[in-house]
């Protein structure tokens, strides 16, 4: 048994196509990939919004002035 469909390379390569594991599962893999991508945006968006809200009240005026001087 092999996840890629070949247990050895005693084959004519002219007859070999895909060699990745779990062939036939491409659509479920795509769905999983798209969920991963969209979830990333959601998580990042929520975190950034919370972070910016906290950051608005975080600054010490003296330190901010020093930051501005540093350019």
């Amino acid at each position: 048994m092999s996840t890629i469909g070949y247990e050895n390379w005693a084959v004519d390569l002219a007859n070999v196509g895909p060699i990745y594991p779990f062939q036939g599962w491409e659509i479920p893999m795509t769905i999983a990939g798209v969920i991963f991508w969209l979830a990333w945006h959601r998580i990042q968006f929520v975190r950034e919004s919370e972070h910016l809200e906290k950051a608005r009240k975080m600054g010490d005026p003296d330190k901010i002035a020093k930051h501005l001087d540093r350019y």
């Binding site: 972070h51 910016l52 950051a55 600054g59 901010i64």
Partner: peptide, 10 residues
């Protein structure tokens, strides 16, 4: 406020 203090400060 964040623009002034800098994104990295926060």
């Amino acid at each position: 406020e964040v623009e002034l203090q800098g994104l990295d400060y926060a």
